[in-house]
Design a protein around this nucleic acid. Sequence first.
DNA 1: GGAAGCATGATTGTATACAATTTTGCTGAT
DNA 2: ATCAGCAAAATTGTATACAATCATGCTTCC
Lengths: 220, 220
Amino acid sequence: MAADRTSLSKVVSDQIRGQILEGKFRPGERLVEDRLSADLGVSRVPVREALLGLSIEGLVRLEPRRGATVAEITPEIVAELVEVRALLEGQNARLAARRHDPEIVAQLRETLKRGNEAAETGTPDQLARLNGEFHERLAEASRNSVLTEVMRSLRERTSIAFAINGRDRAREDWKEHAGILAAVIDGDEELAALLATRHVHKAAEAFARAHAAAANDAAD
Amino acid sequence: MAADRTSLSKVVSDQIRGQILEGKFRPGERLVEDRLSADLGVSRVPVREALLGLSIEGLVRLEPRRGATVAEITPEIVAELVEVRALLEGQNARLAARRHDPEIVAQLRETLKRGNEAAETGTPDQLARLNGEFHERLAEASRNSVLTEVMRSLRERTSIAFAINGRDRAREDWKEHAGILAAVIDGDEELAALLATRHVHKAAEAFARAHAAAANDAAD
DNA sequence: GGAAGCATGATTGTATACAATTTTGCTGAT
DNA sequence: ATCAGCAAAATTGTATACAATCATGCTTCC
């Protein structure tokens, strides 16, 4: 077997995170240690460590003696997340435009191409993954690892909420991605920042509409 | 005994975090699980969970199979942290000025008073604690819990590095705090944001000077 | 004398076991 | 029928035990 350069807790953590982000575990759902450890074929210890880590990241809610649940991202929390995320995405885009590293730009172009295709024919699963990939690569373009990590954490949490946005919004997403990338390539810092900030707000508005509509349906 | 509404891992985590922030554990120092568990009178499990959490917060570095060390905050990392922190402190101060909640303002005044005293006669320990308290309360003034938590995480990490700043800088710190608070009370959003951003940069510059001087001494 | 190789001790990673607490479902009284 | 009270089951929190890996110091060979 290849040298294990990572711990089992990390693997378990990535598994659970993945299932949450894919929507396999829904917000509010209980995450029972025994069941997870049985499903993943490990003992409870690495599962506990994974859940603890995810709770600090904000993806899981941990109540003492009452166990773990998938974090419920309320509209109020979304508003707070968006307020911070919009600011950071803006600054990040500004820095990305300042550097406009050719290698990263090439990667972003590649992701953009695949994203545009997926916006038409892809599954929600693929869309979510490509969206994450675009933002991750854009975040790396600032060459600030602290910024990249904070943004990733915020993005994962908003993505749980934004999952209710449909294909219409996905098409808009990728149009906006294209605009941001163009500004980055041009080295137009101000425009890149503006578009990136606006992109977050637009996604949030789409979420707010979808959320209100869903609440209406539930009230019928 | 009063009802334990918190887990032992949390207690242990707070203990270790406190010792790191007080400088009891120095950057680069190894944190051996056995020793910590013996010192704190608990088993290794809560210690492990605490270390894992602290590593996600960025205060501890965890290498697979090689254990935990107190995170070393290099000048490069400081620069990254400061770039993000300055932005967030600015936005936070802007929001604080917009709300200028009387109750929180009263608390800030109280902390400011004690901070000014400590700047003259307090121990480095007290200074660090009061500095943290001021920034924590200022962060709460924005009424954005996400922002508060992200800022706390960034602040803790910079504070490890900024600990080498001496009493001269402490006096400047509290002068700047006074300026920020005054702008918040006035509801002057732009000034509050400017001063808060500048405050972070000034502390970073003081750190850079102190760090360079220390490096010079070491080269002698 | 120095370096490679190996044995030993120290430390981390995972599993299992047990204690403490919470949840759940039943029973019986009003 | 509903609710309080209690017993049993489920679940979490902590401790201990063992396996896997890494660090250290010795021996031996050149």
